[in-house]
Design a protein around this nucleic acid. Structure first.
Length: 485
RNA sequence: GGCGACGUAGCCAAGUGGCAAGGCAAGGGUCUGCAAAACCCUCAUUCGCCGGUUCGAAUCCGGCCGUCGCCUCCA
């Protein structure tokens, strides 16, 4: 079945057909690196991470570009976010940028978000941005006033096609303070003159200044992906004006479409409210990691559709944590059985019935993901797989190494490669070695106690291990241990 | 004020014309020395409310109520 994608530009699901067969170019608006990433960033980049992973699973070669904004993104006070952050921490602007860029990637790594192929920085693409502004001036779509260059929205009739807004309506009710020098309130800055105290500045044909925020995305997406390119992603809150401006600039400058499929993901809410500094409900990823397993946060995010809003609450997170443990519990059991089965089973064959079941799961999983990346549905399929596998594991019937390997491979493929929630190595597996050996000694001692029906000793061992986060589970094939959070 | 999204069980959340996925929680059972894990069963005659279209609607249309987002250079 073909992949269907909801295109915000056309407001409908469309079959995805890339520009060049076998290759997908995708650009996603990245963070402005002036502070730690919060769980809202987590949702956005996990959402797009899975989209990219699935495209790769489908066999496409994907080039994923995600910018790092390190200049030109202003606060409503007109202050540059980077400069403000640098002043706050008394460091050079680029020092601040470096710090938070690194921290951003560290946070994303913990969420198991694969890094983009290219993470271009706005400050590293100033000449290209000046080039675009020049071109817009030459073609008559922009005008310069006092060292500032603005895009003239009224010259571009298609302005508003993404967000469904009309330029005439923008005048009304807008809270934008209208700068006198603009010809129309909706005109937006392509280049800004640097005031004397503004230290991030570059020479340009219009004097010393810095680029407007929207320009970097137009420039860096097409520089690495061409124009037009396949997919542009970002949070809904950037649909207008950011994305609208990107389209206008790029299409006015080059006369060809900018991007073919627009994807917008829904925002993350905190107990029903938008996360906002002024509401004091901001949760950084680092804070969240202190309380929850990063993979559980990822799993929580995948429990909803990427286009929907998602409400972050303690209860919902706990449910997600439990749910993930359930899935990983099955994976752990399969891998343990593989290990204890040994590698000696040459000539063994996978059970045909099991293979058929696995194939059915794979098909249902793909159907869910093909339908506009329905991860919630895909996760449900994984739960169904878990029930089947657990039943198989408990049935007492012998399972060949090949059968177990096929099950494990499917988990790695769907749960690992695509959803990114099944690790290559579970924590217990990583800790094999000393921890495993120590725990096994205790398990043996406990087994002896149990044999003598010395329940007090047996339970004491179990309780004390539980107290340090190691859970013991007695089964027909002996006792297993796992890390319990 | 303008534009848009959503409202599904105690909670989270899929489903967009044919008798309501999945997870968490809860109750019962199997297994266990007791647990844990796992499995089985139960858990929305109903999808904010009121109308309409249809043989048939959670799904389409209209109205109302409620929540949220954008119009502020927040992912």
């Amino acid at each position: 079945m073909a992949l269907q994608i909801y295109n915000t530009l056309t407001r409908q699901k469309e079959e995805f057909v890339p520009l060049h067969e076998g290759f997908v170019g995708i650009y996603v608006c990245g963070p402005t690196v002036y502070d730690d990433a919060h769980i809202g960033h987590g949702k956005t980049y996990v959402n797009f991470d899975v989209i990219v992973r699935y495209l790769r699973y489908k066999g496409y070669r994907v080039r994923y570009v995600q910018n790092i904004t390190d200049v030109g993104h202003l606060l409503d006070t007109g202050e540059d976010r980077i400069l403000k952050g640098a002043r706050r921490e008394r460091v050079e602007p680029m020092e601040l940028v470096e710090t938070y860029t690194r921290r951003y990637f560290e946070d994303m790594d913990r969420l198991n978000v694969q890094r983009p192929n290219i993470s271009p920085r706005a400050s590293g693409h100033i000449p290209e941005q000046i080039e675009l502004v020049k071109r817009l001036l030459e073609k008559g779509y922009a005008y310069e006033v006092n060292g500032n260059v603005y895009f003239e929205v009224s010259k571009w009739p298609e302005y508003g096609k993404l967000s469904g807004r009309k330029v005439e309506e923008l005048k009304e009710g807008a809270r934008v303070e209208v700068r006198e020098e603009k010809r129309h309130p909706a005109d937006f800055a392509l280049w800004k003159r640097a005031e004397p105290e503004h230290i991030m500045r570059w020479p340009s044909p219009w004097g010393e200044g810095y680029p407007g925020w929207h320009v970097e995305c137009s420039v860096m997406s097409t520089k690495y992906l061409g124009q037009p390119f396949d997919i542009h992603g970002g949070g809904v809150e950037n649909k207008f004006p950011h994305h609208e401006c990107e389209i206008a600039q790029s299409e006015a400058a080059y006369g060809v479409p900018f991007c073919r499929y627009w994807l917008h993901n829904g925002m993350l809410m905190i107990r029903g409210e938008e996360m906002h500094k002024s509401l004091g409900n901001m949760i950084t990823l680092r804070q969240a990691f202190a309380q929850y397993d990063p993979l559980a946060i990822r799993f929580f995010i995948l429990g909803g559709h990427y286009r929907s809003q998602l409400d972050f609450t303690d209860e919902a997170m706990q449910a997600a944590d439990k749910g993930l443990q359930r899935i990983l519990g099955t994976v752990r059991a399969v891998r343990e059985r593989m290990r204890s089965a040994g590698s000696a089973d040459e000539a063994d064959e996978a059970d045909a019935g099991v293979l058929t079941m696995l194939d059915g799961i794979r098909v249902r999983f793909e159907e869910a993901m093909d339908d506009d990346f329905n991860t919630a549905q895909a996760v449900a399929v994984l739960f169904d797989l878990g029930r089947e596998v657990n039943t198989l594991l408990n049935s007492g019937q012998p399972l060949s190494g090949a059968t177990l390997a096929a099950i494990d491979a499917l988990y790695r493929r769907l749960g690992g490669d695509v959803l990114g929630i099944v690790p290559e190595q579970l924590p217990e597996e990583a800790g094999v070695g000393l921890t495993d050996e120590l725990v096994r000694i205790l398990i043996e001692m406990r087994a002896e106690a149990r044999q003598k029906k010395d329940w007090a000793t047996a339970d004491a061992i179990r309780d004390r291990l539980a107290a340090i986060g190691i859970a013991l589970e007695d089964g027909p094939e002996g006792t297993r241990w796992r890390l319990a959070r």
